[in-house]
């Protein structure tokens, strides 16, 4: 894969030179480093994600896996290295940050729905104010999305009035409302009661089947084996191993990976 500079009129940003790349990469990370004060969280992560690829990122807690996917829509700023999302480099350029945030949807562990807005308003907020859509268009699209995640009947309720699983599905709809090319999931089922995990995973499966590029940080190994094209194992801020699920689970190469898998599968 190569990068080159493409100058076209009125635009001087960097894009991936698609003609020279056999594969269709959408996110490129090169030597990404980050520190929290003196603590070196990310120690040079280099990887590439393909268009339409489903990647599960796993690792022990505190390994930096959440921090890593949060750098991709710049909720965290990386301090060294480069991240290029759909041909746009993440830098201090405000316009690039704004663009990338519209192309990358994110789902959080704690849902983070806006509690003062109804379900419908949560979903339409960004289309109306950022994309400047007409309110009626935004609402009809939002209702379609809510139907897709199966909670159209709760559209006029407030987040506190629905269950955790339903809230997380609303959060997915809210992220989809910006028509993102990439979806980031940061432990989407960790805060859920066990009986609600599947309703969220089902929505994610459906989304995967529709061809969305997905980066999922999760401990749901069953989901990983079933849906992922590739699994990345991160420990102490670096990628220890990455492989297709079959290889990853059945024939892990690294000791730490083996230990992690044996511990995780015990449960």
């Amino acid at each position: 894969m190569r990068l080159s500079r493409v100058h076209s009129e009125g635009s001087d940003e960097i894009v991936a030179d698609l003609e020279n790349t056999p594969d269709d990469s959408i996110i490129i990370c090169e030597e990404v480093h980050k520190w929290f004060d003196d603590f070196h969280v990310l120690r040079g992560i280099t990887t590439t994600f393909e268009r339409g690829e489903k990647v599960v990122i796993c690792g022990p807690s505190g390994s930096g896996k959440s921090t890593f996917i949060r750098t991709i829509n710049r909720l965290e700023t990386h301090q060294q290295g480069r991240i290029i999302v759909d041909g746009i480099e993440l830098s201090d350029d405000l316009r690039n940050i704004e663009r990338i945030r519209q192309e990358v949807g994110m789902v959080f562990q704690q849902f983070n729905l806006f509690p003062h807005l109804t379900v419908l308003q949560n979903v339409t907020l960004s289309p109306i104010w950022v994309k400047k859509m007409a309110k009626s268009d935004a609402e009809s699209e939002a209702l379609a999305l809510l139907e897709r995640v199966g909670i159209e009947e709760h559209a006029h309720k407030f987040p506190a009035q629905i269950s955790g699983g339903q809230q997380q599905r609303v959060a997915i709809a809210r992220a989809l409302a910006m028509q993102p090319k990439i979806m980031l999931f940061d432990e989407p089922t960790s805060a859920l009661d066990p009986e609600m995990i599947n309703e969220v995973l089902d929505v994610m499966r459906e989304l995967a089947a529709s061809g969305m590029t997905m980066l999922v940080v999760t401990h749901e190994m069953g989901f990983a084996r079933e849906v992922a094209d590739r699994i990345i194992f991160i420990d102490e801020g670096a990628i220890v191993e990455e492989a297709a699920p079959a290889i990853f689970f059945d024939n892990p190469q690294n000791e730490r990976t083996q230990l992690f898998i044996s511990q995780t599968l015990q449960h």
């Binding site: 909720l75 994110m106 959080f108 806006f114 409302a177 910006m178």
Partner: peptide, 20 residues
């Protein structure tokens, strides 16, 4: 989390403050 969610759906600083 509220600030993060607002940023993640693409709201800038003034909109985040005003709407969320």
């Amino acid at each position: 989390g509220q600030y993060e969610a607002a940023h993640a759906v693409g709201l800038n600083y003034p909109l985040t403050m005003l709407l969320v």
